[in-house]
Amino acid sequence: MPVGRRWLLVAACLLLAGCGTAEDAAISTVQDARSAVVVAQQAVRLRLDTRATTPYTQVVLDDSLDAVGAAEQELRDSSEPDRARTARARVVLNDANTVLDELADAGADQMSKADLDRLTELVGRLDAALAELRR
């Protein structure tokens, strides 16, 4: 393969990488946040059933909070042109951040059925936002 064409191939690869992530930033950040909140919800449910240890549940809450924080940061950094979509995503991400922040601060050993319901309800709101963004 003459050298010229080889460089062309490498350039093509790098170009493709640019738009590697098919969905736009709004959807992918809300999706990341949804994953984190769902896992937190599952951990709290298992904790209430005494099927998950307290330290483990605490780590899941902290990890989920970090993940949502990272998603918010990614959204801020993204060059998303559509103002309305970004705003919609930012609201629900901020919502997730506050809930997880409160639960993580309260501590895994203080979790109650009410906290589980808040998380389940939050997952619903994230799903609604995703459905809207995908329409």
């Binding site: 999706q31 990341d32 949804r34 994953s35 769902v38 896992v39 599952q42 951990a43 298992l46 059933d49 005494t50 099927r51 998950a52 240890t53 483990y56 780590v59 899941v60 990890d63 993940a67």
Partner: peptide
């Protein structure tokens, strides 16, 4: 089924708690 994308170790072991408890 939950549509979770795994990124941390804590998520990897979640199914174990689900299946066999503490």
């Amino acid at each position: 089924p939950l549509g979770v994308e795994v990124t941390t170790l804590s998520q990897v072991v979640l199914p174990v708690a689900e299946a066999g408890g503490r």
